[in-house]
Structures are given as structure tokens and as C-alpha cells.
Design a protein around this nucleic acid. Structure first.
Length: 899
RNA sequence: GGGCGUUUAGCUCAGUUGGUUAGAGCGCUUGCCUCACAUGCAAGAGGUCACAGGUUCGAGUCCUGUAACGCCCACCA
């Protein structure tokens, strides 16, 4: 035990203990140790990422769960790692290249990939280092990266299995295309944003007998006029009387003068726009389907970078948006624009670079999702996997039920290359693990691998088992899989959570985790999402520097209600800092008292768990022990239910307001007093309560609690609080020490009584320093006796003004024998409370209660009701009546006292 | 267009199965540098629980509807 500094130095304490934990191997879990496993896998942050406040929230929650379970005796592993984040990482490196005036094509594929690896090695660890500053107790020896050899092997294995099963196919289809990243995106990667666009009404001249009629038009409405260059038809609803006559006739495509047939298709909604739709199969998913139905050949008019191609005729070489402007100008000049209306619609944006996504026809790889989704849906429906809060079950279910095939190919370089090979000799196509040297069919060596790489989520959906060494069977996998809890934000339920469930069931034959806790999104104090571009993000590292990691963690937990979004501003982190300071000072107080009466130390640690002598315990001692036991119960229960804010609030209330405000204050009478036996006993109680509190608090504030654990000598030097047992409710102890809830209620009531005394004291202007005994005076000795036995009633009566506190005691004189002081500090006077008003209030209350009671009785005497209603309903009513009756009696009692 | 969430004190939010007087933190007012802590202590003010109906002896809590704000999903051009 060493003397605690006056000021808690969070910075040095936090780095010191974190290093020590790592040196001691405290975070490492080993399957061979056996026991009950508890396994959490981190949502792998992007390797390019830096810690933002959302990570801080997400990882604090995981760390709390993991530290709690570890203390509770589980063989606990928290699997850490990072994601190679295909597009995101490639973008970062490309941006760096651009500063040197180069593109990735200047380097070539191989050199570029090497460059990315170099970048990863140099800068990639940032977020990992930052997680360490947060205090995350990840098993760093197991750290994985989605492009590790092992995980890449898992990716190939999975691809081949799905390929051979026929669940992976390659097809020409309209996909979400990012013209800036030059790649296809999955549906999930295209983010819809409401955009104020325009709806252009364009006249398509009708041809009759092969000749243009200059006066007759079909008007179509479109939001993307530039795509008309790729039109191959105009569609109308077959039931639409306006256009019936035109079906089968032709129109002339403005500008390019291509002949377009008018086709009939049920898809067209006659109520929208003009009821006539231009059909552009290469640039719109609906049009693509229509094109197929009517066997129309798509015409692609755009390059991959969003620049118009030769198909666009005179507009070739223009950027798509420039082309839009020009075409509108030209159409206007030609009198072919009927009108332009403002139009609100959702436009897809690339989730990585925010560029407007272009629906584009291209050859891509897809995973057939239906067969995978069905068992994954079932797992949630039958409760094997549970979302918390449970409303996410439905969100997950809806997505699974309406699942669409997953576009997994990306036209970038950074990522897992698609393990499909083509033989140039015999045109054979196959999927293979590793690097095949020749074609399995014709043995030709003229083979080449598919150029595309896989969606980054194609490796992260395997995370719960690939990180444990799958596809190789091993002890880790057997022991830790399936994991227990997944902690994440709602944004990646579809990207990641849902797909992990599918992969787990498909490849491991079992769900990957049992519970999914979805926490809220962190927003600023105006409710906006935190983002770099808005400049409103709070940097957790700044907070750690300014307040400490523990303060950050605790504050986050205090203000994060289960699954609700979190609104943050800098000042909120004072909660955690102040709480830490409070605890620090409570410890210092105990240490100062210790120097006078040391508590025995055995085996290098304090025997803070030794038993108490009931004969030496006062009501206050028992009270704090009862409260401690309740805190242990509620804290554990709240953690089980993912109610981190309740757990944090309860601990705050207990440690600050019960322990510090009342018990520590009370202890001063004893510790500054002269009774050595009581002194020792009270110190023992304090250490007992404090060491339990530190353990309960440890998952929330790991560094501070470790520092105090050692500072107070609760563990031997080599023992971490991380491995101290999680406190259990004190049921047996309380019984042995004679600590009951009645006794605790008595002390609670007395605390309230003392508060009333303080209130009166302030009202009377008694100086703070002036100590005066007070007595409770009532008109009869019987009542006095009763009040002494029932402090709760006394408090009620005091408040109602039925009894008064009197200063009938003169310092230096003996106390009147019939009356015993209940507190020892404060003095006050009669006449502060308006007895008449209080009594009127009580009367009114009683009257209302009588009414309620009468009606409740009436209900219960109604035979028709009794015979018809279910027994449990009747029981409920009976219970209600009894509650009412109790309340009625209480108020009546008070009124009678008042006389 | 569909789904979901939120609406409680000046601010940010708790309030578990309906039941004593609706809570906390911050902010504000008053008094205290009292020998653990001014990052603190004691006390106080401040609420028609968004609105309208309904169920109930009793509703912040359950039901129906309305409004405002927010989020997610969505191939009506």
C-alpha cells in the first residue's frame, strides 16, 4: 500500500496499468484453460480508420461486458482486428498517389497493392493504438486482419464452396456503379439521399408510315435526360386508353433520331408523369427488366467514369452532368421540352465517396442469397439469436425476407481477388483455392484469374470463425464458437450482422452469436450525426487527454440509454471525471484514517473480506451493507440486460450518495472518536464496501479501479483487479450480521429526517457551524414511543406538520427523559408548517381514496364480473384493492393523529 | 410509398409488469474554502408528462387517433 497522491494523475496511471496488463497477459485467453467460454468479436474497424466517438461507445460497451464476464469467472476472449476496407483504403492510398501526380495505373496492379500494404504497415495500426488508450482489454495476441493469410484462405474456401454449390454466379446486370471509384457497389453500399431534382417532360415525335409528324408527340418524363441517348423504346401501360392506339407504332428519339417502338408493359404506372416511360435498359434497373421482357438490346452510352461514350453521339466525351445540361439546352432549342418540374426523389450515393451512383449495366459476380437467408431468418424467429432492443428483430426479418442477390465483385485492386480462373485454350471457367498452374480440363497453362476483387464484406461476414482459424478445425474454434454477444450499431445490421448469421449457419452449421446488442448512434447536441465534414465530431482522444479514458467511458455509459441515440457535447464528460475524483478522495480519506488504526494485511493483501462482529455493528453499518448488496444485485442484473446507463447510475448513486454522502460522513463520528473496537470495525466495513464497489466499477473505469485496488492493498502486487471475483449479493453475510431491509428502511427514514432538520435549520438561519441537539416532541408518550419505533411514519408526520421538531433542549442540560434525540445536529422551531392547510390536503386525499376504494369494492362484489372474468384478472383486482386499502389506512392514520 | 423511434424541469435525458409526493445530471438561486474532495458540501426554485379521445376505482405508463422532429428501408421513370 502506498500513499495516494492528492491529485489523481489519470494520464500516467492509465498508460502504466495498460502496459502492465499487457505484460501480465491479463487479456489473453487460452482454450486449453477450459471453463465456460465467453467470446466477443470486435466489429473490425477499417484499417484506415481513426477512433471516433462511435468507436469509443461501441468498444466501451464491449470492454464492459468482457471485463465483467472475465471477473465472473468465464474464460473470456475478445477477438480484435481490423478490416482491409477495400474501397476506403484504396481511396486513401490513391489520394496520396495523386499528390505525387500519379494514378494507380501508373504503378500497375502489383506495385500498387504493395504500396497499399506499405501504407497499412506504416499507418494502419492507428486505431488499434487508440483502442488501447481507451482501455480495451482485447486479446491482442490474436489480432487479425481480414487480408491475413489465414483469413484469405477462409475467403477462398467460402467462395469455392458457394461456387461449387451453384450459389455464386456471374451475370450482366444493372448494378450500382460509382463513377468515381470505378466499381460496382452492393445495394447496401448505395445510400439514398433525398434530393431536390427536376422532372423533365420531353417530346418524342411520332412517326407515321415511316415519316415524322412534326405535330404529334409522346411526352415522357425523366429525371435523367442524358440517358435518353440510350433509349431503345417508349413504354406505356396496355390499359392506358390515351396510348392504346400508339402501341406498336414508332417514335423518333430526339437528337439521335433513332427509331423507337412504343411497347406495352404492365410495369408502367399511368398515374405517374405522363404515363409514358422512356426505356433505357443499360442505365436503369426497371428498364433493364423491361428490355429483357421485350427482347430489346441495351445501348450503353456511358464510360465507367461517368463520361458519355461514343454511343452518345455528339455528346461523347462530356461528363454525365455536363451532358445533361447540354441536352436540355439543345432540346429546349428544338422545342422538345414541354416543361420542367421540380421533383423530390431519392438518389443513390456511394457510401465511400458520396458520388452520385449511376445504375450501370455490367458483368458482375453475385451470391444467390435466398437459400442462405432462410435458415438465418429462422434463427432469429425461433429466438436462437436475439436482438436487443428487440425491435431490431423485425428490421432484420424484413431484410431477410426481401433479400436480393449480393453483388460481390468490385473493379478495384485492393482486396481478395476473385478466385475464378479462365482457360484461354478451352474456355473452361472454375473456382480454385490457391494458385492453380493449369486448366483442370485441358491441362493448358494459358489460364488467367478474374480481374475483380471481392466486396470487403465478403471477408468480414466470416469474421466470427475465420479469426479462430477456420477452415482448419482446431481447439479454439471448438471452444469459442459460437460466440456470445455481438455489439454494434444499427448501420451495419445488413452489411455485416445479417451476413455473419448466414455465413455462420452455412459454413459452421451454427449461429455465430446468441445476442446482438444494437447501441445508438452518436450525435452532436443538435441531433446531427457526428461527421468530419460537418466539423461537429468530438474526438475521443481529445477527451481522453482532457479528462481521462475512464471519464470518457463512464460519461458515455451514464448518458447512453439502451439502444437510444446519444447526444453529446464536451461538457458531458465532466460527469465521469468528477465521479473519478470523488472516488479518489474517498480512498484518500480511508487511507488517512488507516494510519491511525491499520487494518491487518495478510499475504500481501488487505483482509477486507473478513467477517464482522454483529455486536460491534451499528444500524448505519448494517444499512450500508444492505445497500451494497442491493447495488451488487442491480448492477449485475443491469449488465445482463444491457442496461449500461442504469448500472452506471446505480453505482453513481450508491458510491457517491450512499457511501460518500452518508456513510463516510457518519464514520467520522467513530473514526475521530475514542472507541478502538468501533474504529476498527467501521474501517473494516469501509474497506469491505469500497473494495466491492471498486470491483463493480472496474468494467466501467478500469484504470482508476486498478490503481486504487493496489493503492488500498486489496490485492497482492501481482494480482489485477481484472481477475478479482465479481461480487455476489451478500445474502448470507447480511443474515449473519443482522442486517435487514427493515433496519435499512429505518436508517433511510432517519436520513430523510435529518434532511428535514437541515431544511428547517436553513429556513431559521442557524449558522452552519452551530451544533445543536434536537428532539421530537409529541403530545402523548404513546405517540412518542410509536414514532420511535416507526421512523417512516415520523417522517411523514413531520412533513405533514403533525409533529414538530422543537429546541426544547438547552445545551448543557439533561435531555427530558421521555424523549430521545433522533439526530444530533440540528435545531428548528414550531410554526413553519401550516397545519390547517396540510390537514385539508390530507382530508381531500382521503376522500378521493375512499371513492376509489368504494368503486374497487363494488367491482369485486359484482358476481357477474367475478364469474365471467379470468381468475388472474380477479386476483389482480384483489391485489389492487389491498394496495388501495393500505394507502387509505395510512392517510386516515395521519389524519387521526392530527386530531 | 412502407417501417421504426422520439416528444417528461431552462438544457440533455431516466422512468422495467398501471398504484404513496414523477427522478437524475447540467444550468440557475442561497449559504458554506467544515480537518477526503470547491472536479466539493448543504439547502432551494423549476414539470397540465406533445395534443385529443378511450379503457380502469386509478394512466407519464395500456389502446385509438392527431401533430412535430428524427432514423431506416424502397427500382414510380
Amino acid at each position: 500500500m502506498k500513499e495516494l497522491e492528492k491529485q489523481y494523475d489519470a494520464k500516467s496511471v492509465e498508460t502504466r496499468w495498460y502496459q502492465w496488463w499487457q505484460q501480465q497477459g491479463c487479456f489473453h485467453s487460452d482454450a486449453s484453460r477450459g471453463g465456460t467460454p465467453y467470446c466477443v468479436v470486435i466489429p473490425p474497424p477499417n484499417v484506415t480508420g481513426i477512433l471516433h466517438i462511435g468507436h469509443a461507445l461501441n468498444n466501451t460497451i464491449q470492454d464492459i461486458l468482457v471485463r465483467w464476464q472475465r471477473m465472473d469467472g468465464k474464460n473470456t476472449v475478445w477477438m480484435p482486428g481490423t478490416d482491409h476496407a477495400g474501397i476506403a483504403t484504396q481511396n486513401v492510398v490513391e489520394r496520396a498517389l495523386r499528390k505525387e501526380g500519379k494514378t494507380r495505373h501508373d504503378l500497375g496492379r502489383e506495385a500498387f497493392i504493395k504500396k497499399v500494404w506499405d501504407w497499412k504497415d506504416e499507418y494502419g495500426g492507428t486505431i488499434v493504438r487508440q483502442l488501447k488508450r481507451l482501455g480495451a482489454s482485447c486479446d491482442w495476441e490474436r489480432e487479425r486482419f481480414t487480408m491475413d493469410a489465414g483469413l484469405s484462405e477462409a475467403v477462398e474456401e467460402v467462395f469455392c464452396r458457394l461456387y461449387d454449390k451453384g450459389l455464386i454466379y456471374r451475370a450482366n446486370y444493372i448494378v450500382n456503379w460509382c463513377p468515381r471509384c470505378h466499381t460496382a457497389l452492393s445495394d447496401e453500399e448505395s445510400e439514398h439521399q433525398d434530393t431536390a431534382g427536376k422532372l423533365y417532360y420531353i417530346r418524342y415525335p411520332v412517326k407515321r408510315d415511316g415519316k415524322l409528324t412534326a405535330t404529334e408527340f409522346v411526352v415522357v418524363a425523366t429525371t435523367r435526360p442524358e440517358t435518353l441517348l440510350g433509349d431503345v423504346a417508349v413504354a406505356v401501360n396496355p390499359k392506358d386508353e390515351r396510348y392504346k392506339a400508339l402501341i406498336g407504332k414508332s417514335l423518333s428519339l430526339p437528337v439521335l433520331h433513332r427509331e423507337l417502338p412504343v411497347i406495352a408493359d404492365e410495369f408502367v404506372d399511368p398515374a405517374f408523369g405522363t404515363g409514358a416511360v422512356k426505356v433505357t435498359p443499360a442505365h436503369d434497373p426497371n428498364d433493364f427488366d423491361m428490355g429483357r421482357r421485350h427482347e430489346l438490346t441495351p445501348i450503353n452510352v456511358m464510360h465507367p467514369d461517368g463520361v458519355m461514350n461514343e454511343g452518345a453521339g455528339p455528346y461523347a466525351g462530356l461528363d454525365r452532368f455536363e451532358c445533361r445540361k447540354r441536352i436540355v439546352t439543345d432540346l429546349t432549342a428544338a422545342g422538345l421540352i414541354e416543361k420542367i418540374e421540380p421533383h423530390q426523389h431519392a438518389v443513390g450515393h456511394c457510401y465511400r465517396c458520396d458520388t452520385v451512383v449511376e445504375p450501370r449495366l455490367s458483368l458482375q459476380w453475385f451470391v444467390r442469397m435466398k437459400p442462405l437467408a432462410e435458415p438465418a431468418l429462422q434463427a432469429v424467429l425461433d429466438g436462437r439469436i436475439r436482438f436487443v432492443p428487440d425491435r431490431w428483430n423485425k428490421v432484420y426479418g424484413d431484410w431477410m425476407e426481401n433479400i436480393r442477390d449480393w453483388c460481390i465483385s468490385r473493379q478495384i485492386w485492393w482486396g481478395h481477388r476473385i478466385p475464378v480462373f479462365y482457360c484461354d485454350s478451352c474456355n473452361h471457367q472454375w473456382a480454385a483455392r490457391g494458385k492453380p498452374g493449369q486448366c483442370p480440363t485441358c491441362q493448358s497453362e494459358k489460364i488467367r484469374q478474374d480481374e475483380d476483387v471481392l466486396d470487403t464484406w465478403f471477408s468480414s461476414w466470416l469474421w466470427p470463425f475465420s479469426t479462430f482459424g477456420w477452415p482448419k478445425s482446431n481447439e479454439d474454434l471448438k471452444f469459442y464458437y459460437p460466440g456470445n454477444t455481438l455489439v454494434t450499431a444499427s448501420e451495419i445490421i445488413f452489411f455485416w450482422v445479417a451476413r455473419m448469421v448466414m455465413a455462420g449457419i452455412e459454413f459452421m452449421g451454427d449461429i455465430p452469436f446468441r445476442e446482438v446488442y444494437i447501441h445508438g448512434t452518436v450525435r452532436d447536441d443538435k441531433g446531427r450525426k457526428m461527421s468530419k465534414s460537418l466539423g461537429n465530431s468530438i474526438d475521443p482522444l481529445t477527451i481522453i487527454d482532457q479528462y481521462s479514458a475512464d471519464a470518457l467511458r463512464y460519461s458515455l455509459m451514464m448518458i447512453t440509454a439502451t439502444g437510444q441515440d446519444v447526444y453529446l457535447s464536451n461538457e458531458k464528460f465532466e460527469i465521469g471525471r468528477n465521479f473519478g475524483t470523488k472516488i479518489w478522495n474517498a480512498a484518500r480519506y480511508m487511507q488517512m484514517q488507516e494510519s491511525a488504526t491499520p487494518v491487518p494485511v495478510q499475504d500481501g493483501k488487505r483482509a477486507e473480506d473478513s467477517d464482522f462482529d454483529p455486536a460491534l455493528l451499528s444500524a448505519d453499518d448494517r444499512h450500508i451493507l444492505v445497500k451494497l448488496s442491493r447495488s451488487i444485485e442491480s448492477c449485475t442484473e443491469n449488465l445482463k440486460r444491457f442496461r449500461f446507463n442504469d448500472a452506471a447510475h446505480d453505482l453513481y448513486e450508491f458510491i457517491w450518495h450512499e457511501y460518500c454522502d452518508w456513510y463516510v460522513e457518519y464514520s467520522k463520528d467513530v473514526l475521530y472518536g475514542q472507541d478502538p473496537a468501533r474504529r476498527a470495525e467501521v474501517l473494516k466495513v469501509m474497506h469491505y464496501v469500497f473494495s466491492n464497489s471498486l470491483r463493480l466499477l472496474h468494467p466501467f473505469m478500469p484504470h482508476l479501479t486498478e490503481e486504487l485496488w493496489h493503492g488500498m492493498g486489496y490485492g497482492a502486487d501481482s494480482e489485477s483487479i481484472m481477475n478479482a471475483p465479481w461480487p455476489k449479493p451478500l445474502t448470507d453475510g447480511l443474515a449473519r450480521w443482522g442486517a435487514t431491509s427493515e433496519g435499512a428502511a429505518y436508517v433511510d427514514a432517519r436520513h430523510e429526517l435529518i434532511s428535514i432538520g437541515r431544511m428547517l435549520r436553513v429556513d431559521c438561519g442557524i449558522a452552519p457551524g452551530q451544533k445543536i441537539d434536537y428532539i421530537v416532541k409529541s403530545n402523548t408518550p404513546e405517540l412518542t414511543a410509536q414514532l420511535r419505533a416507526d421512523t417512516a411514519t415520523l417522517v411523514a408526520m413531520l412533513k405533514a406538520g403533525i409533529v414538530t421538531i422543537d429546541d426544547g433542549f438547552t445545551p448543557g442540560k439533561a435531555m427530558p427523559s421521555a424523549l430521545t434525540p433522533i439526530g444530533t445536529i440540528y435545531m428548528p422551531v414550531e410554526g413553519l408548517i401550516d397545519i390547517a392547510a396540510e390537514s385539508a390536503k390530507l382530508s381531500k386525499q382521503l376522500e378521493e381514496l375512499a371513492g376509489h376504494l368504494a368503486k374497487a369494492n363494488q367491482k369485486l362484489e359484482n358476481q357477474a364480473f367475478i364469474s365471467k372474468a379470468k381468475p388472474e384478472v380477479v386476483a389482480q383486482f384483489e391485489k389492487s384493492r389491498q394496495e388501495l386499502q393500505g394507502k387509505y389506512q395510512k392517510v386516515k392514520h395521519l389524519l387521526e393523529m392530527l386530531g
